[in-house]
């Protein structure tokens, strides 16, 4: 069974005084556990919209979206939020760390929505996770005082702290220089492999895309296999 699966998914939005805008058109995509998938595409092609669907933040207009075989649109919204919290970790282009909160508080945040030992042991778990991304010495640093690469490492720690099955990264290196981007991606790859999580990376950088097992291209809402990208690893 796929971890998450889109079958013939269309996503349209209604625009006042105009025809509905089709952002995604007949998308089929299944992500298997532990698999690494990349999606490339031009700006405005619908990449973020696709990622929001994979992350259960958005619902398809038509077609099916299933998480571990369960229909996502049929879930009650509270359950959808909890399934997302327990299974999906997001990494954003602009890091999206909480301002004014220390690195440790940022990484602790997802554990606030867990229960049991993960909730009660959240500070220790978060500190361990920051240690794994090489920031064990910057626990009390505020995002503003961290470099871009360090901020993205905090974001990686935050995305992985609940040990999710699926990591969704939307242009994770978009705000970093090439070298820092590569080292952050190496770190992300390593941790994802250790945790045996699936990773979906959205990027416009073929070198980043090449790190994945399967490659897709999104062009004006249509998803196709990208045979021209060759896996490097």
């Amino acid at each position: 069974m796929s971890l998450i699966e889109l079958s013939d998914v269309t996503r349209t939005v209604l625009i006042p005084d105009s025809d509905p805008l089709t952002i995604l058109d007949g998308v089929n995509l299944g992500v298997e556990p532990g698999e690494r998938v990349s999606v490339v595409g031009r700006s405005g092609s619908g990449k973020s919209t696709l990622l929001n669907l994979l992350g259960m933040l958005d619902l398809p207009t038509t077609g099916e979206l299933c998480f571990e075989g369960e229909s996502v649109p049929d879930m009650k919204s509270g359950r959808r939020d909890r399934v997302r919290g327990g299974n999906v970790g997001f990494i954003f282009q602009q890091f999206n760390l909480l301002d004014g909160r220390t690195a440790l508080e940022n990484v602790t945040m997802p554990l606030l929505y867990a229960r049991g030992p993960r909730f009660w042991g959240r500070e220790r778990i978060a500190a361990d996770m920051l240690d794994r991304v090489g920031l064990g010495h910057r626990l009390t640093a505020l995002p503003g005082s961290l470099s871009g690469g360090e901020q993205q490492r905090v974001a990686i720690a935050r995305a992985l702290v609940r040990q999710p099955k699926l990591i969704l990264a939307d242009e994770p290196t978009g705000a970093l220089d090439v070298e820092t981007g590569q080292s952050v991606m190496t770190l992300l790859d390593d941790i994802v492999r250790e945790e045996n999580a699936a990773l979906v990376t959205i990027t416009h950088d073929p070198a980043i895309a090449a790190r994945s097992d399967r490659h897709f291209r999104l062009d004006r809402g249509v998803l196709t296999l990208a045979d021209d990208i060759v896996a490097v690893s």
């Binding site: 933040l57 919204s77 939020d81 909890r82 919290g85 999206n96 997802p110 606030l112 929505y113 609940r162």
Partner: peptide, 11 residues
């Protein structure tokens, strides 16, 4: 951001 990390609307 909190919602995307699992906070329900009730929460």
């Amino acid at each position: 951001i909190r919602r995307s990390f699992g906070a329900t609307s009730g929460r």
